[in-house]
Design a protein around this nucleic acid. Structure first.
Length: 503
DNA sequence: TACAAAGACTCAGAAAATTTGAG
DNA sequence: TCTCAAATTTTCTGAGTCTTTGT
């Protein structure tokens, strides 16, 4: 913790010290009055040593550890739902620690307290025997609510929010919910044209609310922005989504880089990830935004008459179950399908097909603004890969000359041995070429992926049936695109999808 | 009936843990 | 086949969205 940048932040230090003092005895409080004078290095070293000691364990000891952990999973990691044994997603409750939060969180550094059995609500069926609380303790409550999916819950002390113990993504329950989500998005496909016509028409509405709603929908549809609920000021980091955009987040350019009517976005979104984009928009949208911004201060809301409740209410009147986030799912999935069609050739080899798949996935991640910090070792690993490629090229050149030599020799002294030699050398050349191509594709993929996180879209936005159908059509084994966990999560799609599936 | 707060669930990237593969 | 670093997978828990509840 000490080597983290956030321990140097003023807010973090102040919050921590304030909460720490609350935990001190009267004597301690008298002595410890200034965080600057506290030296945690010994404590830090103690923890570091512990980590090192664990790393240094022998093979057998590590295996013992693993077995012991597995036993815990076997005992506590499952529940019985509708007489099916299902894996629990997070069966361990959150240990105490210092709250970090993302971005400039006003509560960073606060003490996250240890959860006691007295804080925990157990939710199980009436017939079930609830788990026994630790000796000398009791649960806050044992209830039997079959309208919700959680098994246990508690209220966390930093933000006052409720935390839940829920099922793993590979459970039947979550799988069905996932399927429903994509079915709603597919329904949107069939009426998106008329919805688009609708909001384009509303851009000229006499009512300000309708115009603001239309522009917001235009952004949500075109740019896959999140809805943007209002947040309590001072309780969380200052981030926004579509409906909560402020004037300061937008710059208008009548003309920019050869395009007309360009909107420049610059704001912090979910998890304080920066959204920066310059987008040419249609004239009517541009004019409306100008109008919305008129005589407003930078800190004022762009859509002062609109909020997510109003927006979603309107959407649900256009299509059952339609909300702002469905547009993200729909646009993500339809983009994947289009990109896969555009980028992949049946005649490509598997490595080339996989690069295309990753590129299609990447197009979606960019649309949804899924970013990651470039890996710390990125430059090094890139350099390593390039030097490997150079080495392989040299090896290939050598293999080629050897092949030529072998062919020459076969001509001079015709015999089974020299024929064998030619075959062997030819195979070596082929192998070398394949490996070289594979590495070059890998280098391209990695370079393009430097700051892009593919996982989130793959796991949460892309209808898995599109990928399964693509694999079938392209003769790519499903294991190449989904690892074991992902295959478990998407088992429903892998089971039911035919090659002709269309999103 | 409106609207705010509470509740329940999905989605999010970082970090830790584990596996892989090159030498 | 052993070792080590890099790559991949898993875990963790915070941050959103949207629905339900209560006043």
């Amino acid at each position: 913790m000490l080597d983290h940048e956030y321990t140097t932040k003023k807010v973090f230090r102040e919050n921590f010290f304030k909460d720490w003092r609350k935990e001190m005895t009267r004597q301690e409080r008298l002595v410890i009055t200034d965080l600057e004078k506290c030296d945690f290095r010994e404590l830090h070293a103690f923890h570091k040593d512990k980590v090192e000691a664990r790393k240094a364990l022998s093979k057998e000891e590590k295996q013992d550890q693993k077995d012991a952990n597995q036993k815990i999973v076997d005992k506590y990691g499952y529940c019985l739902l509708d007489s099916h044994r299902e894996r629990i997603g997070n069966f361990k409750l959150e240990p105490p620690g210092l709250f970090r939060g993302r971005g400039e969180h006003p509560k960073q550094g606060m003490l996250k307290k240890r959860i006691q059995p007295e804080d925990v609500i157990i939710n199980c069926s009436k017939e079930a025997t609830p788990p026994a609380p630790p000796a000398g303790h009791h649960w806050k409550e044992v209830r039997h609510d079959n309208t919700v999916t959680w098994l246990a819950s508690w209220t966390e002390n930093v933000q006052g929010s409720i935390k839940y113990i829920m099922l793993n993504a590979n459970s039947k329950l979550k799988g069905e919910k996932d399927w429903e989500k994509y079915e709603v998005a597919r329904k949107l496909k069939s009426c998106v044209d008329s919805i688009r016509d609708g909001y384009l028409r509303d851009l000229k509405s006499k009512q300000m609310v309708a115009r603001q709603r239309a522009v917001a929908l235009y952004f949500i549809d075109k740019l896959a922005l999140r809805a943007g609920n209002e947040k309590e000021e001072g309780e969380t980091a200052d981030t926004v989504g579509c409906c909560s955009l402020r004037v300061e987040h937008i710059t208008l350019h009548d003309e920019l880089d050869g395009s007309e009517c360009v909107v420049e976005f610059d704001f912090l979104g979910k998890d304080s990830i920066r959204y920066y984009n310059k987008v040419p928009v249609i004239k009517k949208v541009f004019k409306n935004i100008k109008l919305f911004m008129e005589s407003k201060d930078p800190g004022d809301e762009l859509f002062d008459r609109l909020n997510t409740a109003l927006l979603n209410k309107h959407l649900s009147s256009l299509m059952p179950d339609l909300t702002a986030k469905v547009f993200r799912t729909y646009n993500a999935s339809i983009t994947l399908q289009q990109q896969l069609r555009q980028l992949t050739n049946k005649s490509d080899n598997v490595a080339e097909k996989l690069l295309s798949y990753n590129r299609a996935n990447r197009a979606v991640a960019i649309l949804c603004n899924h970013q990651r910090a470039p890996p710390k070792t990125f430059e090094q690993s890139m350099a390593n890969l390039h030097s490997k490629i150079v080495a392989r090229k040299e090896q290939l050149a050598l293999a080629k000359t050897e092949l030529k030599l072998a062919k020459k020799e076969m001509k001079t002294k015709d015999g089974p041995d020299s024929k064998l030699m030619v075959d062997r050398k030819a195979a070596a050349v082929k192998r070398c070429e394949d490996q070289l191509l594979k590495m070059e594709l890998q280098a391209t993929d990695r370079e393009e992926n430097k700051q892009i996180a593919l996982g989130t879209s793959k796991l949460n936005y892309l209808d898995p049936r599109i990928s399964v159908a693509w694999c079938k059509n392209m003769d790519v084994p499903i294991e190449k695109i989904y690892n074991k966990t992902q295959r478990e999560k998407f088992a429903w799609a892998i089971d039911m999808t035919e090659a002709d599936f269309e999103f």
